[in-house]
Simulated assay, not measured.
Amino acid sequence: MEVSDYDWRLYKSLLPKWQERYMAKLNKEYIALLNENNNPSTNFWKLEKRIHHDIKSPGVAIDVRRSDLFVDILSLMNAGVINREDLADFSRDVTDWIDRFL
């Protein structure tokens, strides 16, 4: 399916905001992990493992290609980075396509 110029520009402008919001959430979770009542080394290694896992999330790093917009939006939704409300300003073509897969 073809991505309109409007949707492409909107996606490129919103993606960094979505990622920042997601990483702020991760940072809070990391702080909670570091404050757990364990040995400091235990918390450190738990954090290292968690970051290694989280760095693969589209909420942290994603290849941005116009042809992947639909799949990327689904990936962001599946990873909990965005929700359906975050797509309110997209065209009906995008939201209808996404709704078919939800």
Rank of each mutant, 00 (worst) to 15 (best):
N35K: 11
N39Y: 11
V3K: 10
D68E: 15
A61D: 07
V71A: 11
L69M: 15
H52N: 12
I98L: 08
W18L: 00
E85F: 01
A88M: 02
T42K: 06
L14T: 02
L69C: 07
M77N: 08
I98Y: 09
W45K: 04
R50E: 14
D89A: 11
D86W: 01
S41P: 00
P58V: 05
V60H: 03
E29P: 01
P58S: 07
A79L: 08
H53S: 07
W97R: 11
D89V: 02
A32C: 04
I98S: 05
L34A: 12
K28I: 03
R50P: 03
V94L: 15
G59Y: 06
K49G: 10
N37K: 11
E48S: 12
N37F: 07
N37I: 07
Y11N: 01
R50H: 08
E2D: 07
F44L: 02
A88E: 04
V3R: 10
K12E: 12
W97L: 08
M77P: 04
V71D: 14
E2S: 09
V81F: 09
W97D: 05
N27W: 01
I62A: 13
L102F: 13
A79N: 13
M1V: 11
H52E: 14
L26V: 06
Y6A: 08
K56H: 07
